[in-house]
C-alpha cells in the first residue's frame, strides 16, 4: 500500500530531468560548470578539468593572449615613450627628453582645437543621422512589404563598400559641382549647383560617412526590433495604444540596448575616420575637415614630427578609452546573462 507512494517520493527527490538540463546549460553559460571547476589550482590541473588520463590537453587561449598582449603593449608603450621625446625624422640627430613639450605643443596648436571640434562634429553628426534614420528605416523594414529581401540587400549594401570607393563615388559622381548628380538636379530645378567640398566641406564628409554607417545602424536595430514579442505588440494594440504610444512605451525601451551598442561601436570607428577625408578633402580647405586622426597623420608622416604625433596619439587613445569603458560595460552585462 505504501510502496508506490514511497517510490514516487524518491523519484521526486531528484530534480526533473528538464530542470537538470536547464541547470546544466545555465552553468555552462555562466562559466561555473561543476565539471570544470573540479580542480581550482591551474598549476595542478594543466588540462582545465579535462580527464587527465588523456595524453593531449584541450586547446589553449595562450597564443591569442600573448599575441594580443604584444600588439597592445609594444607599440603603445613606444607611443608614450616617443611622446616625451624630441624626435623629428628630418633631423634625427636632435634627440632627447622633451618633458611635456610635445603635449603643450600639440595642445596649443590652433589646429588641435579645430581637429577636436571637427572630430566631435563628425561623431555627433553621423550618430544623429544614423540613429534617427536607422530607427525610421528599421521600423519601415519591419513592416510586411513586398520584396523585403531585395530591399534589405539594397539598404545594407553601402556598408560593404570600402571607404576610398565610397568617398570617391560621392566626391566625383554625386557631389561634383560641375558634373555631379546633385548639380544636375539643382540645374534641373533652376537652382545654383552647390560646390559641396568648397562650401560645406565638413558637412559633405559627414554625409558620406553617414551613408556608410546608416546600413549598420539599420541592420542592428532591425535585428533587435524583430526580437520584440509579437504578442506584446498585439496586446498594446488591443489596449488601444496608438502608434506613437506603442513606439514610445514599448519599441523604444526595447531598442534601448541596441541603440546603446550602435552608438558606442560607431563612436569607436567614427573617432578614427581617415580614408574618407584623405581622398576627398585631404583635411582641407585649411583645417576645415581635419579630425584628430588626420591631424596626427599629418604631424607624423607629413611633418615627420614623431614626438608631436605621439603626443597626439596618446590623446586619441585616452579619448577612445573613455568611450570604450562604457562599451565594455554594455557588452559585459550581456556576458552575465
Amino acid at each position: 500500500m505504501h510502496q508506490p507512494h514511497k517510490r514516487l517520493a524518491r523519484s521526486n527527490y531528484l530534480p526533473h530531468p528538464e530542470v537538470r538540463a536547464q541547470r546544466a546549460s545555465k552553468d555552462a553559460l555562466s562559466g561555473k560548470s561543476r565539471r570544470t571547476i573540479r580542480n581550482r589550482n591551474p598549476a595542478r590541473d594543466p588540462c582545465h578539468g579535462y580527464a587527465t588520463n588523456q595524453n593531449a590537453c584541450p586547446p589553449d587561449d595562450g597564443p591569442a593572449v600573448v599575441l594580443l598582449l604584444i600588439w597592445m603593449i609594444v607599440p603603445l608603450s613606444m607611443t608614450i615613450w616617443y611622446s616625451f621625446q624630441n624626435y623629428n625624422m628630418l633631423n634625427p640627430a636632435m634627440r632627447g627628453f622633451a618633458g611635456f613639450f610635445n603635449y603643450v605643443y600639440f595642445y596649443t596648436d590652433p589646429a588641435f582645437y579645430q581637429a577636436i571640434i571637427n572630430t566631435l562634429f563628425i561623431v555627433v553628426g553621423v550618430l544623429f543621422i544614423t540613429i534617427v534614420g536607422g530607427i525610421a528605416l528599421a521600423l519601415l523594414l519591419d513592416q510586411p512589404i513586398f520584396g523585403q529581401g531585395i530591399v534589405r540587400i539594397l539598404v545594407i549594401s553601402p556598408f560593404f563598400v570600402m571607404p576610398p570607393v565610397a568617398a570617391l563615388i560621392w566626391k566625383n559622381m554625386i557631389m561634383h559641382p560641375g558634373y555631379g548628380v546633385l548639380a544636375d538636379v539643382s540645374r534641373f530645378l533652376g537652382l545654383q549647383p552647390v560646390d559641396w567640398f568648397a562650401q560645406y566641406p565638413l558637412t559633405s564628409v559627414i554625409i558620406i560617412v553617414a551613408w556608410q554607417w546608416l546600413p549598420f545602424a539599420t541592420l542592428i536595430l532591425l535585428t533587435a526590433l524583430q526580437s520584440l514579442d509579437e504578442e506584446q505588440k498585439e496586446a498594446a494594440e488591443m489596449d488601444g495604444a496608438n502608434f506613437a504610444n506603442r513606439f514610445w512605451y514599448l519599441t523604444l525601451p526595447h531598442l534601448a540596448r541596441a541603440i546603446t551598442v550602435v552608438i558606442l561601436i560607431q563612436t569607436i570607428f567614427l573617432l578614427a575616420v581617415y580614408a574618407e577625408i584623405l581622398v576627398t578633402t585631404n583635411g582641407g580647405p585649411g583645417y576645415a575637415t581635419t579630425n584628430l586622426a588626420f591631424l596626427i597623420y599629418r604631424t607624423a608622416l607629413l611633418s615627420y614630427d614623431v614626438g608631436g604625433a605621439s603626443a597626439g596619439g596618446v590623446i586619441a587613445v585616452v579619448l577612445a578609452n573613455i568611450v570604450a569603458i562604457f562599451l565594455m560595460r554594455a557588452v559585459g552585462r550581456n556576458l552575465d546573462r
Binding site: T79, I296, V306
Partner: peptide, 25 residues
C-alpha cells in the same frame, strides 16, 4: 571573462595612437 573583455579592449585602441611606432617598426 576578464580575458574576453580585455581582448575586446584591444580593439578599442585607435590606430592613429600607434601609427608612429608601427611605421618606425
Amino acid at each position: 571573462k576578464d580575458i574576453l573583455m580585455w581582448m575586446l579592449s584591444t580593439k578599442m585602441m585607435p590606430a592613429v595612437g600607434v601609427l608612429v611606432p608601427m611605421f618606425l617598426i
